[in-house]
Amino acid sequence: MPPVHRSVVYDWLRHDKKFPHVWCPGCGLGILLGSLLRALVESGLDKNQVVLVSGIGCSGRLPVYVDVGSVHTTHGRALTFATGIKLAKPELKVITVMGDGDATAIGGNHLIHAARRNLDITAIIVNNQTYGMTGGQYSPTTPLGAKATTAPYGHIEPSFDISALSATAGAAFVARSTVYHVTQLDQLLGQAIAKPGFGVVEVLSPCHTNFGRQNRLGSQVDMMKEFKRKGMRVERWRELPEGRRAESIPLGVLVDRDLPVFGQSYDRICDAASRRGEAGK
């Protein structure tokens, strides 16, 4: 594939949708949308081969703007709908877009079991550390001590590490990036889409409207500069002494392993069962 020009994203946006889109000025979801479209085009996929599935939340609006088959499903259930689509039409490339609350709280059960099952689905999890659409309530990824609408004196629970959770649950590919590291994000999304098996890409994104405002983190520019300051290639991060690792966020491919893919295993079982059935006639 020759390199495509960035402006190809205008070919993949839905022309009958109202632009500018609904997200707050500076929201990372717009950057992710562009990145995902570039990754899809770079992968050489046709619009008719791709299905985007989303749950509820700000991230749920993302597939609405893309000119591919898309489903905006119920809260936390993007992966369940995606599982059905993939099993019914295995030739389609199914990609889910979920927020951190959508994926790890309401749909937490579905996330770990989709990872364990290792179905050929790409799950993009946008982590803004809060429930942005509903007004900034704490989510499972809100850091300990951070303020939220439902934690005005600071959050008293430790947070989930989405990437570590997905890796432990058995995902074949796990990567993390931020919307500031947009060229890396393009590459990681492309790798996750190409990988057979369950691929998780955790995308850190600023919610300056709710999380940033309540925690005095400044504008989205300040929050993205913080991503720039803290972000570190995972290869370098692993060389850090244990005590200094918490200061940085490891970015890049965290897990990439070949595991049995559910679709292929299912086809084998179907073949074996039909052979036995015919032999018994």
């Binding site: 402006s7 205008y10 946006l13 562009g34």
Partner: peptide, 28 residues
């Protein structure tokens, strides 16, 4: 790439306007 709103484009191959009543899949 960092513009969340697709509100700017760099280079000559920028977006071309789609005509009125453009069919599905036409350029936005």
């Amino acid at each position: 790439m960092l513009c969340p709103d697709f509100a700017l484009s760099v280079g000559e191959a920028g977006p071309k306007p789609a005509g009125a009543g453009a069919p599905r899949g036409s350029r936005v």
